[in-house]
Nucleic acid binder design. Structure first.
Lengths: 342, 342
DNA sequence: CTGAAAGCGCTTACAG
DNA sequence: CTGAAAGCGCTTACAG
């Protein structure tokens, strides 16, 4: 017994075959499948039945060619050395993005912007790839790429505040208020000589966490002169802490702009014979895995990384849908997480 | 002064325009661009010049429709809970894959196989997505998905040995020999009562590292009865170590199947009043970031994670190119990294 | 070595 | 509400 409704093996059924099976034109079949109005319910039912029995799936490539939309967005990440450090960050953002794209039907195309090709090369391949929009995770720099993308007219959302391009839509954690909370918590628990190990001066996340700490200190009129910078590696945290202990041996607390640097700082503090939190209290930032693993477990400020990714996806989706009232950029709340170092 | 060779703004130049500018037919322009033979050098030069001056880039969507190849491969990762643990692993594999794809021109489409849709849903969207091949990172299970993909005829390379499907091409680290090296190193440095904390019994990586350890021990005729299992979390490493110390208080070394579990084990060892490596030597596996951060820094077995990704990409590329003599699967060497716990 | 033409599988004005 | 037809931008036998 043959079943003439079955698709011929080896080749995917086409819209044409669906239309024939349903006894309608290709145009009507297309409308029914895409849920457009002006299709009689009987035609719609026939098409749905044909789709089911043939196992039809629309060929996205053909659709893209006709509609000039690809149904995919690019996730661009820079492949710079520094990035390796924040691998877990990246993975979590991506999970969030993937979740946020959810049932939108959009594919996520990954693009590692290779430094050897330069940003122009990345831009080119984005246009070649014909994506509908771009999600750019900008850890370090990437500002010029963001600017070019914006000017090219491609819908764009950046993760992390771009340093120089205030006009690019972005989503970021509220680093300023998080750092301010950290300072206030230290003050509230009786600390009076509070230092900070900040991130790089040329990264928004470094700048924002430093100015947030300043704001928190200023609200109590405490001095903000004990500042050293690191580059978010553990080693740089150790080195910065050594400098701080030398210049400010009387410090009784330190806010460190990342958990990883904080772990380095804690080692130096302990090696100097000081106890944590007895002699020196420590607050980190990120609430990464190592915060809990540190000994003692590290008090820190949590940034909602998955949520950051989800929000980036949401923002891009909304823009693609033509949503008129979109906030240019979005700040996600950070949260105090008390553990044993304060 | 107008430049008639420039593309009209707003719309990308087409092959048609290139052909016209070069004074050849579309067919010839296409051949020249794709580097096919049978194009006169004068025609080739004219086309190249036209491409340059117009800034032409081939429309991949149109090409895909014509050739029935998409120029993209899917990276499928399962989004299960357990996966979160190995985030850094995942990010590094992906970097390797991206690097391995290199200049192949293939796009990497990311697909998080959501558990809620089940594997059938994932499979469907892969076929819909019309990718040329699939890279599957199989951390836990995923064997049935791998099997279905294989049967669907889509070129496939799995990262990590599938547990039940011996017929699927995969790339993995040489966990067996790595674990064997670990055991031998402990024996060579004078340890005689060597325990192990193995991974889950239902993961290939758990099984392979356990049997490798057994092999290493057997070569010296030492007993292999001190075995406990964890699930690769730090907590499970702690719990397993507690059980080991209870059942084998005389142990003088332990091989732990992951660095993260090893850090947990070290805490328990130290809390029991034993010194590392004085009383108990410890060897981990992975050479992840925390291996260096542990105190004392952890001796471990390095697995080449980026290389794993690169090799997966290479294997898939070779298969797509129709390379006839491909090894069904590939094992990447692991490497001993001596630090302070042995 | 080259060109005219058909075809890849859809969508979408347009005219009914 | 529906269908015939043009078009999206390429590739590739086929015939010269």
């Amino acid at each position: 017994m043959k079943d003439p409704a079955k698709a011929p093996a080896g080749r995917a059924p086409t819209l044409d075959e669906v239309a024939r099976a349903a006894g309608v034109s290709r145009a009507t079949a297309s409308r029914a499948i895409n849920g457009l109005p002006y299709v009689s319910s009987s035609a719609r039912a026939a098409v749905e039945e044909a789709v089911r029995s043939l196992g039809y799936r629309t060929n996205q490539v053909a659709r893209s060619l006709a509609t000039k939309r690809t149904g995919s967005v690019a996730l661009v990440v820079s492949e710079s050395e520094k990035f390796v450090v924040s691998d877990p960050f990246f993975a979590r953002v991506m999970r969030g993005i993937s979740g946020g794209l959810g049932d939108s039907g959009l594919q996520l195309a990954l693009l590692m912007a290779k430094e050897q090709y330069g940003e122009e090369g990345s831009l080119r391949s984005l246009r070649e790839g014909h994506v509908d929009g771009v999600l750019l995770v900008s850890v370090h720099g990437g500002d010029t790429l963001a600017g070019q993308l914006l000017e090219s007219g491609l819908p764009l959302v950046v993760g992390g505040r771009p340093l120089t391009r205030g006009d690019v839509p972005y989503v970021d954690a509220d680093n300023f208020n998080g750092a301010s909370m950290a300072a206030r918590h230290l003050i509230d628990t009786g600390r009076r000589r509070v230092a900070t190990i900040a991130g790089p001066r040329d990264m928004a996340v470094g700048i924002d966490r430093l100015s947030g700490w300043r704001r928190g200190m200023a609200s109590s009129g405490l001095p903000t002169d004990a500042v050293e910078h690191g580059d978010f590696t553990m080693e740089s945290g150790e080195a910065a802490m050594r400098r701080l202990l030398e210049s400010h041996p009387d410090l009784d607390a330190v806010f460190v702009a990342s958990d990883l640097m904080a772990v380095g700082a804690m080692r130096v503090i302990q090696a100097s014979g000081r106890s944590i939190p007895g002699d020196v209290a420590v607050v980190g930032f990120d609430d990464s895995d190592i915060a809990e693993m540190a000994s003692p477990p590290l008090t820190t400020i949590r940034q909602p990384i998955e949520e950051l990714g989800r929000t980036m996806a949401w923002r891009l989706l909304a823009q693609l849908a033509g949503d008129p009232d979109l906030p240019p950029s979005i700040l996600l709340p950070t949260e105090f997480v008390g553990r044993a170092t304060t």
